[in-house]
Every structure is written in C-alpha cells, then in structure tokens.
Amino acid sequence: MNFEIILEAWPLFAKGVWITLHLTVLALSLGFVIALPAALSLHHKGRFHRVWGAYVYVFRGTPLLVQTYLIYYGLSQFDWVRSSFLWGAPGFLDGTWLGAVWPSLKSAWWCALIAFSLNSGAYQAEILRGGLAVVPEGELEGAKSLGLNPSQVTRLVLLPSALRRALPQYGNEIVFMLHGSVVASVITIQDILGAGRTLNARHYVAYEGFLTSAALYMAITFAVVWVFRLVERRYLRHLNIRTAKPKGAGAPGIAGIGGVAWR
C-alpha cells in the first residue's frame, strides 16, 4: 500500500464523494416522487396499475448497469433522439436558467440520474406497496369512523403508517442505491469509484484506488445506517413492545376502557 499516492489524489476523491452523494440523493428523491403514485396505484388497483406494474417489473427485473448502458449508449444511437429536445435544450432556451439545467441525454450525468431514479423508483414502489399492504384494516376503519374522507384517510393515516412500516427497508434501499451508483463510473462520471479507477490507472496499481473507494463508501454507509437508527427509534416507537406497565394500574386508560389488559 502506497499512502502517498492516495493523499496526493485526495482532491479527486473529494470531488468523487460530492458527485456520488449528489447523484444518490437526487436519484432517491426523484425515485420517491415516482414511487408514491406507483405504490398507491398498485395498492388500490388504480386505473393505471398495470402500467405501473409493468414499470416495476421491468426496472426491478433488469440490472442497473444494463439500464444505464441502454440509456447512455443505447439511446444515443438514434438520430431522432440526437436531433430532438431529448439531446439538448431547444434553441430559444439558450442562455436561460432552464437551458442550463435542461435534462439532456447528451450529458452522462443526466443519463445516470435518469437511470438511477427510474431504478430506485421501481424498488421504492415495491417497498411502499409492501408498507401499504400491512397497514391494519382497523386503523383505516378507525379513520373512517372519525369521518375522514378517502383522500384524508390516505394522507393522514394510510401513508404515514405505511411509510413508518417501510422505514427499515428504506434504509436498505438507500444503501443499495449508494452502492449501485458506482455504475456511474462506467459512463465517464468521476464518482468515488471513478476517482479510484483513475488513481489505479495513473499509478498502475490495483489496491490503492479500490480500497480508498471502499473505505469512503463504507464511511457513508455507516453514516446512513446510524441516521436511520435514530429515525427508526423515533418513528417506530409505537411498535416497541412495552416493558413497563402503564403508570398507576387501575387508572382509567385506554386499556381500562376497552377491557384489554396490557401484557
């Protein structure tokens, strides 16, 4: 191990960390925006549930690497793609902020973001659907009996409850997406792994670049896991099995009213 060359390359890795985090956070956020309607439609067998089902089936059924390759190298093969607004902002947007942030397939960064978002969206849709499916009927009946209309039930009871139940799996999905983002390095993006590969190639070594990348991914993963532990502790409190008896046994509480004894 040659630590000198690793230290020398730290600006490369710092930039890589920024790109990886940036890409992962945006992909997870956009993925969530896709997953929410998808999961609700799948759960309620909505009008487009077959379309969403096909989307989830395709993007969970194929590897992220293949999806990224198809979007980056595949779509660019078609002349009509390259001569359309998909390839770059229309001329009248030149010089405007919209022209500057236009999601162009010409850019490797946008291709990666699109592929990652679609992929994560499919996984998140499944996670959310699973969360929705295990919300007890009683919670929903209770909500209805309080006079909430269907959209209120969804917004105030069903979704919060499903999201809480999905939390542990969400932590997993974030870690998977973080690790999946290494795919960006094969389409010329200098993410953490890209920085590692460049280091390896520059010095003809095998371990220094990969081990540094691995250490960085591990550090980020641990940070995510730690944050999720805190979040879960807060939002899944109600699922903890009570160890202490409620204070003042015999006092009028929920348990008393329903006649169900806490165990």
């Binding site: 190298y73 660019s76 390259r82 010409k106 010329t188 200098q190 460049t198």
Partner: peptide, 18 residues
C-alpha cells in the same frame, strides 16, 4: 478530457456527439 474504459466506448460517444 473524458475517460473511457475501452476504446470502443470512446468511438460510441464520438458518434453520439458527446
């Protein structure tokens, strides 16, 4: 500079106009 894993990928991106 854009760095590619293989020469063939560089040709693909040259054709794509990237």
């Amino acid at each position: 500079l854009k760095l590619y894993g293989t020469q063939d990928e560089a040709y693909l991106d040259l054709q794509a106009g990237r």
